Computed example of a mutant assay.
Amino acid sequence: MSDTQAGARPTPWRWLRPALGALVLGALVARTGTAPFVAGLRMATPWSLLAAVAVTAVTTVCCAWRWQLVADGLGVRIGLGAATAAIYRSQFLNATLPGGVVGDVDRAVGHARRSDAPGPAARSVAWERLLGQSVQVPLTVAVLLLLPSPLRGLGAVGAVAAVAVAALLLAGAHGVRRRTRLVRLVSSEARAVLRGRRLPIGVASTVAALGHLSIFVLAARVAGVEASSVALLPLASVVLLAAAVPLNVAGWGPREGIAAWAFGVAGLGVDTGVAVAVAYGVMALVATLPGAVVLLAGRAPRPRALRTPPVREEVACA
């Protein structure tokens, strides 16, 4: 079975993800009422939306550059312009469809269909997303540990949790043979992707993460939060890390829930946290609208497979 066929198979988990996000939203409405949501929708100003569009343009190009680097390492080349257009399209789909990962799946499938090496082409999207998270998670832990905040203790907890999750994922491989194949594939592709590219991938990921943090801080400002940026960064880091968890309805759910909790713990108010998260959601959605243009125009990346890929296809299929 091909990667694209496996990715297209419907599973209960596909429907459970948005259902859990809707459950979080329902619980928040029951707790706070609709007023914070309505307030958040009204708070975004034209200049804040323009700022979000500009910052997101930078973060999108950084993500496209990261994908380009990953694709080159896996033996599939894609131009920066095509990668940027595809990521804009992916962001728009993630921001408008349930689950929060439909855009990434669409990007992986499209990349695979247009490549002579569909396995590495599809996995390049997974590697690009993984490498982004590999920077966002330690950045969040560092912010929580270094900056004064009621959430500081979460930094140590987060570090321990990350190690525990990694151990569980490794232990979850079924059978020695399957585990050996998985380790061989991951090790081979990791070496190919990171060889000579660690620094640029790290730079692209860091700039992208800082861009999203700046938009959240901007959302807090338009919501009237007067706390300093130093006080807001730990809250923003935790909220955006939660927003990356694919248990949402077009991005909504965990983001608002964690924001309500974090702002409440920080003494800024549960309602304020919800309003800021909603304002951020509006700004992020508007910033992805170029992806709608790409979607309507039918543009898609057209990767070209190298004659001798660094990662052999037979390893991927082992």
Rank of each mutant, 00 (worst) to 15 (best):
A173I: 06
G110P: 05
L170Q: 11
L185P: 00
H111W: 11
E226C: 03
A190Y: 06
R184D: 15
A223Y: 01
L154H: 02
S115M: 09
T180S: 14
A161F: 08
V183Q: 08
R107Y: 07
L130G: 12
S134L: 15
L185H: 09
G153P: 00
R179E: 12
A121I: 07
L145A: 14
V183I: 14
R177E: 13
V105R: 00
V101P: 01
A159N: 00
V203P: 09
S214L: 14
A117L: 14
D104E: 15
L218V: 08
A227V: 09
S214H: 01
Q136C: 03
S205H: 07
E226H: 12
R129T: 11
S188D: 11
H111D: 07
G155H: 03
A112G: 12
V222Q: 09
H111V: 10
L194N: 03
R129V: 13
L185C: 07
R221F: 04
V135G: 02
G196W: 02
A164F: 06
R198L: 15
L194H: 05
S228H: 03
G172F: 03
V165P: 01
P150V: 08
V125F: 13
H174T: 13
A190V: 11
V143P: 01
P98A: 00
E226W: 02
I215Q: 14
A219C: 12
L210A: 12
Q136E: 05
A190D: 01
R177H: 14
T206S: 15
S115C: 11
A192G: 06
T140M: 13
A108H: 06
V157P: 01
S188G: 15
V193Q: 07
A108D: 04
A208N: 10
L168Q: 03
R123N: 08
A156K: 00
S214Y: 04
A220W: 05
G175I: 06
A121Y: 09
G110T: 02
H212Y: 14
L144T: 04
P200Y: 06
L168W: 07
V207M: 07
V157Q: 05
G110R: 08
V137A: 13
T180R: 14
R177I: 12
F216Y: 15
V203I: 15
E226T: 15
R221S: 13
Q133G: 14
V193N: 06
S205M: 04
V105G: 03
T206L: 15
P98F: 00
L139K: 07
A173K: 05
S149D: 02
V225Y: 01
G153A: 08
L199Y: 02
L151W: 00
Q136P: 00
R114I: 04
G100D: 08
V217S: 10
L170N: 11
A192Q: 06
P150Q: 10
P150H: 03
A192T: 02
L144E: 04
L213T: 09
R107P: 10
R177A: 14
P98H: 01
Q133V: 13
G119V: 10
P148M: 11
S228P: 10
D106E: 14
G211W: 06
Q133H: 10
V222P: 10
V101M: 13
V157Y: 03
S229C: 04
R198G: 05
V217P: 11
Q133K: 08
S149M: 02
A159G: 15
R197P: 03
A223F: 00
V165T: 10
V135W: 09
S134Q: 11
P120Y: 00
A156D: 05
A227S: 15
V207S: 07
R177K: 13
A208S: 13
L182C: 00
V160P: 01
V193L: 07
V141I: 15
H174R: 14
